[in-house]
Design a binder for these strands. Sequence first.
RNA 1: GGCGCUGUAGCCAAGUGGCUUAAGGCGAAGGUCUGCAAAACCUUUAUUCGUCGGUUCGAAUCCGACCGGCGCCUCCA
Length: 472
Amino acid sequence: MLSIYNTLTRKKEEFKPINPPYVNMYVCGPTVYDYFHIGNARSFIMSDIIRRYLEYKGFDVKFVMNLTDVDDKIIKKSNEEKKDAGAIADLYIKAFFEDIEKLKIKKADLYPKATAHMQEIIGLIKKLVDKGFAYNVDGNVFYDVSKFEKYGKLSGKNLDELISGARIEINEEKKNPLDFSLWKKAKEGEPYWESPWGNGRPGWHIECSAMSCKHLGETFDIHAGGNDLIFPHHENEIAQSEAANGKKFVNYWIHFGFLNINNEKMSKSLGNFFTAREILKLFSAEAIRLAFAQTHYAGPLNFSDELLASAEKGLEKLNNLADKVDEEIKKNNTTGNVPAFEFNKFKNDFENAMDDDFNSPQACAVIFDFVREVNRAIAENENISSKFFLDVKEFLQNTAEGVLGILDFSKSTVSSNDSISEDLINLLIKLRIDAKKEKNYALSDKIRDELNKLGIILQDSKEGTAYKRTKK
RNA sequence: GGCGCUGUAGCCAAGUGGCUUAAGGCGAAGGUCUGCAAAACCUUUAUUCGUCGGUUCGAAUCCGACCGGCGCCUCCA
């Protein structure tokens, strides 16, 4: 039984999709005014792991991630760089897809753009105005929070407190300081669309309500995003969607904890701001994913080079086994022993971990336990059948590769399509074995060291000498 | 001020009442194997879970107080 911590109820709840096996899931995507940062990457990776696990469980997931391509920050950047706002958005959308791919994040089924949904957005605002939840003041349309009695139900706030503690700039046009923009009147030089209230553009929250409704329906299963989106963004989405449709908006709200640097929030002003692409130059996608998966998605994560370095080291153990497994499968040994091994126990442990509110740190522990047990079986048995290794591979493919994305069998170092270099390496290995037989260890060590410098690591064992390439 | 998260070994981090006299990763120490390495395996590395009290047959887990870290309430993943 899969349970999920629901921000709305502040409890772990059994996950019951509206229309199984279908699951409709919406994750707040980037505002495309810059490269996304490593904190965004955490949200994207953790939502990817959640999505992959739902698919592992047999759900048919429709995964939608919006691209907010019209917004104040984009306009600001376009003014600064004297470029068209659309060109800025296009540039960073392209970069977004490049980075997502490098991070091994599975593509969403849909990436709706705000600018491609103006009719839906305007339609939704119109509905809110008609129903009396919104008002127009000279071309600016605001949502009237006092009209939505459940305002604050997601963030646990109530209107009076919000008003008294409000640090919101005074806007004379608003009836209530907490009212938020649905439609902003265009200023000189800003991109605009035509609407019943004049030329303008949508406010920040409305595009998510409009696009999720269009692509996932008026009520859908899961909505996820960063912690800081609980208020006001998600609160406002609820207010908009539920007021317009008269139905519950989302059943399960999932929120990701913040990524901190030295226990401080990452921010450009503190100078501790890293983009995902900068980090990808230093560490592998798998290491980033493992580092993230080893912390529960909802808690804070303190990010550092050491964290990634330690993940990178841990990954070596996993990769070494994966290489070994491929090597053994290649041998196609059909007559060897099949060691007794509790594959089902590990499978159950993995599933129990992930079923418990996507406890990926526990799931990682299961995988590392599995790796150790397999290595032990290999050490304790001789002449092992390839069948065993096929089972090992299947488990790792389903879990470490398929759900967590911390392993990539296609990166295997065993096969090389460069047969000449492979032959050359094997030739050197033969020469080294000859040297060893003559106890010419100076020469044999030299061969090993020199190959090492070229990124080829030799490993002697009872069965002979194997080599692997250091991975990038 | 309001709301919420958090304090577990040298570092990162699960566990939230008995299955745990506390997982897993990194690091450290010793060992097996090896000509030496590497890899792999084995052993050791928190009698203890911020502090002090309380509830309980039993608590890292529940309650209270106190001390510390962080986030949101304004754009933000």
